[in-house]
Write a protein that binds this DNA or RNA. Structure first.
Ligand SMILES: NC(=O)c1ccc[n+]([C@@H]2O[C@H](COP(=O)([O-])OP(=O)(O)OC[C@H]3O[C@@H](n4cnc5c(N)ncnc54)[C@H](O)[C@@H]3O)[C@@H](O)[C@H]2O)c1
Ligand SMILES: NC(=O)c1ccc[n+]([C@@H]2O[C@H](COP(=O)([O-])OP(=O)(O)OC[C@H]3O[C@@H](n4cnc5c(N)ncnc54)[C@H](O)[C@@H]3O)[C@@H](O)[C@H]2O)c1
Lengths: 210, 210
DNA sequence: TTATAATTGAGATAAAATTCACAAAAGCAC
DNA sequence: GTGCTTTTGTGAATTTTATCTCAATTATAA
């Protein structure tokens, strides 16, 4: 990958959005798009789109904009989406079940290959064709399957312990849906928190004051 | 509310986190906490915590930190959580069902009072005691019930149309789980996007490059 | 071939967010 | 009461992020 230096996480998030609209454009048969169009579609600005892309290279043609297929390929390369990733789910509760059935993960290159639980009722069975293991088996299974990413959807009370076990199993990327957003990963690992409760509290703030 | 001027959305998000740890502290019987403790627990810094709070007033005592009960009350006031909010769900699919059953919304002051669907199989019944209406009834029901916040969990294809209908029904705060993050609300309305697909793509980036 | 229009890429500038640094409390011990 | 320790609140400095501007490039049409 021909780039160096620290890139803002905000840039990375926006690249995901750009990629989404570019794929829609491609599906519509569109061949080129300008930074202005991409910005319009992602509630951003043309300058922001160009700046974000410029950290990684020059992908456009002056006067013409960006070739959509080329830019999709470039962004997929940047984001590491030019491959498939094996993913584990930890905690097959209500939210875990809906995540497993969520089609888009597969479409963007992420495959669930293992579910980890502590409930003896669930262990040994499978859900949507994916085997359910005891959480104690995580180190073995993750190594055998080379799983590097886990979605954690256990109750907040268990999450601290589960994060530690997940890291001990060799997982380096955690998508945390447990509601507990206060875990600091070691330097070689990464965590992304998704917290609908906090989001709805923000809405409350804006409705109260504006 | 004794404050004015524009507050960063990042500050608002962090206030939610501070509130969470403060409530935990309160449940543990703790009486006071310093900015350093709160920072430690929320993966922030002491200066950041103090700065965030200082936009809204002085809630601490020099040398002593913050009284936990007082600070909880202050933050709840700031975020508009010193009341209950009625909330609608639009789209009772897999993710919608798990959101309805998600206990924490009730604990922090948000009550689901209506579900809107377009599937005739579901309409007229109820889920978890909450009535399911046809989406055409949204304007009437939202007015009668004074619902101002909606969680949108319909498929991405329908989301554009649904956003418009939700706004037309008088909703002013949208928590969008549809995966389509490109909707620009009118000035009097607010949207918060939650997108697990984009989050997992960020993880891919970090695992690829670090 | 030459003007015309569109749009990129990037340096300069501006704005926003975070961190620093320290005087001003506030409690505590003696 | 005096001195010591802790920790806030905040202006200033710094760092980060976003926006602005415009020369350079490309296609197109006259
Ligand atoms: N349901 C939602 O819509 C929703 C939304 C946002 C966040 N969340 C959060 O997601 C988490 C799970 O929510 P849910 O509604 O799916 O709860 P749930 O109780 O339905 O499911 C939790 C699952 O985790 C398993 N589990 C518990 N401890 C475990 C451990 N140590 N190791 C492995 N598995 C373990 C349980 O056996 C259970 O199957 C909660 O923290 C909740 O705050 C849920
Ligand atoms: N399942 C997940 O874990 C998950 C995670 C993240 C995001 N999402 C997103 O959430 C959305 C819903 O996902 P899901 O898995 O629940 O899908 P789903 O198909 O199970 O449910 C969608 C529901 O929305 C209803 N619906 C469709 N159009 C409607 C309309 N115009 N008005 C009212 N209701 C309508 C359908 O009848 C259905 O009940 C998708 O866009 C998906 O990308 C899902």
């Amino acid at each position: 990958m021909p780039f160096s230096g620290k890139i803002s996480p905000l840039t990375i998030q926006r690249l995901s959005l750009y990629l989404r609209v570019l794929k829609e454009y491609a599906a519509m048969g569109k061949v080129a798009a300008s930074s202005g169009e991409i910005a319009e579609a992602t509630v951003s600005t043309a300058a922001q789109v160009r700046k974000d892309l410029s950290y990684f290279g020059s992908f456009g043609k002056k006067g013409q904009g960006y070739n959509i297929d080329e830019l999709i390929e470039a962004i997929e390369g940047i984001l590491g989406l030019d491959r498939r990733w094996k993913v584990a789910l930890v905690g097959l509760g209500k939210i875990g079940q809906s995540l497993i059935q969520f089609k888009e993960f597969g479409q963007i290159g992420f495959d669930f290959v293992a579910i980890f639980e502590k409930d003896p009722e669930k262990i040994g069975k499978s859900f949507n064709g994916i085997p359910i293991y005891h959480i104690d088996e995580m180190p073995r299974v993750c190594e055998e399957e080379t799983i590097l990413i886990a979605l954690v959807a256990v109750p907040a009370e268990s999450s601290e312990e589960v994060f530690q076990r997940v890291l001990d199993a060799g997982i380096r990327g955690i998508l945390n849906l447990s509601g507990r957003c206060c875990f600091k990963p070691p330097p070689h690992a990464f965590i992304k928190n998704v917290n609908v409760a906090a989001e709805i509290e923000s809405l409350s703030y804006y409705l109260t004051h504006f």
